[in-house]
């Protein structure tokens, strides 16, 4: 069974990804750039959804659009003078940046065009059928269960190692953020302590 993504939805989402990404770099206010970033991440999640990778889409929203982007917005909200429209992102080395971006583009394009993508087996295609989007995907099996089995069977070791890595970074963050007990308290301490 072949699942054929809706081309209208695909192009809408793709335009949203590109448009929001452009807005991230072009927005005059930092907060707007942050919002646009969330928009990009959401649209990418939409693309995942279009490819029926539901779990990936949900995790994309939960982790990237949810946790990480919101942390970013927090940081922006706390910056000084945030409503000032005169704050602009500095572009001191435009040519270096352009060169680097072009290089990245070349690498990505090269990778995309040269790899062989795993698609639905051709045998299920009828001879007259042509994919509307230019690509087709196999009807998804229940993705969460499949993912779970994969994680716990062939990929147990990497999975565990990643979790250890996250634990290490968590503890590291705690150590960095913790107030050093050897140093004195903030200058204005509490005047009186309750008995």
């Amino acid at each position: 069974m072949i699942y054929d993504p809706n081309p209208v939805a695909f192009w809408l989402l793709a335009a949203m990804v590109a448009g929001c990404a452009l807005a991230v770099v072009r927005a005059r206010k930092l907060f707007h750039a942050g919002l646009a970033l969330v928009g990009t991440l959401f649209a990418v999640a939409g693309l995942y959804g279009l490819l029926q990778a539901w779990f990936l889409a949900a995790v994309q929203v939960l982790v990237y659009a949810g946790a990480i982007a919101i942390m970013l917005l927090f940081a922006i909200m706390l910056t000084h003078n945030m409503m000032n429209p005169d704050l602009k992102s500095l572009t001191t080395q435009p040519w270096t940046a352009a060169a680097l971006c072009l290089m990245l583009l070349a690498i990505l394009l090269g990778g995309t065009l040269s790899s062989t993508w795993q698609t639905a087996p051709d045998t299920t295609l009828s001879p007259t059928w042509t994919p509307k989007c230019g690509f087709q995907v196999a009807e998804a099996i229940p993705s969460v269960q499949a993912l779970g089995f994969r994680l716990l069977d062939p990929f147990t070791l990497p999975f565990e190692m990643v979790s250890v890595l996250i634990l290490v970074s968590l503890i590291g963050a705690l150590v960095v953020a913790r107030r050093n007990p050897a140093l004195p308290e903030a200058p204005e301490g509490r005047e009186e302590k309750a008995p």
């Binding site: 539901w54 779990f55 889409a57 949900a58 995790v59 929203v61 939960l62 949810g66 946790a67 993705s143």
Partner: peptide, 12 residues
């Protein structure tokens, strides 16, 4: 398929 996760994700 991912109903519960979807619900939590949308809350963000």
């Amino acid at each position: 398929d991912i109903g519960l996760l979807y619900v939590v994700a949308i809350t963000t």
